[in-house]
Amino acid sequence: MLLRVSIEKAGYSSSATIHSIQFELSEGQLLAVIGPNGSGKTTLVRAISQVLPFIDAQIHINGTNLMQTNETERSRLIAVVPQSTFVPPHFLVEEVVLMGRAPYMNWSGRAKQDDLDRARKAMGQTDVEKFRYCVCGELSAGERQRVILARALAQDTPVLLMDEPTSHLDLRHQIEFLELTRSLCQKGGKTVLVAMHDLNLAARFGDVFLAMKYGTTDAFGNAQDVLLPEKLSEIYGLAVKVIKLVDGGRTVVIPQ
């Protein structure tokens, strides 16, 4: 197992926000984390990347216990695309993407050829190469989101965590973004966790699903186990229909 997560309790104080979450992902799997607002999706991403003040958990990546690593070691194992798309406005896009190489740089932050190559490749993958010399303050929210994704890709980690990465993207970039994510899993062997609201996108791109409610696991498994109308209706408190389209066998979730 590449990523092994076992969270006893985690949150912003000792009164935990999330609790009792266990799952394992193997190399190349894409986990879609779904659940209503306040169910703990963002807290889960923060707990795995160890930026919460209070964490009681066992998290292993490739056998390395994350609780015993420092920030630099951790940032070579996990890259995060956070929900907030704040980017310091005075930096160029290229400078921001190169900061994904910070875990591999010394104090001076001087980019080697390898760093520049990886940054360039990441910018190409997320379609921001044309903004390379633009100042981040002039980009739209969706463009900033793609810049942050490029930064995370440049970080070159086995695990990638994303919190609502498509929230500011238009339809085309949503699909392209998730296609790219899937190819990173299938071809690049990355293990990816994506917290998302759009159940149709989740159904289309997820290999495994984690449904959260009240800060804990409600269901974990593949589409047949999790994307069931009764289950989803109960989790979201709203009657939904799950339809399998005739062409391609794609699953679609429709609120009733």
């Binding site: 930026v51 704040f86 310091p88």
Partner: peptide
């Protein structure tokens, strides 16, 4: 410390995720 100060511009959480103490 100038380069680390650059990374800190993203805020504490992202700076930690980029490997800064």
């Amino acid at each position: 410390l100038a380069y680390k100060l650059n990374v800190l511009q993203f805020g504490d959480e992202q700076a930690v995720q980029l490997g800064i103490n």
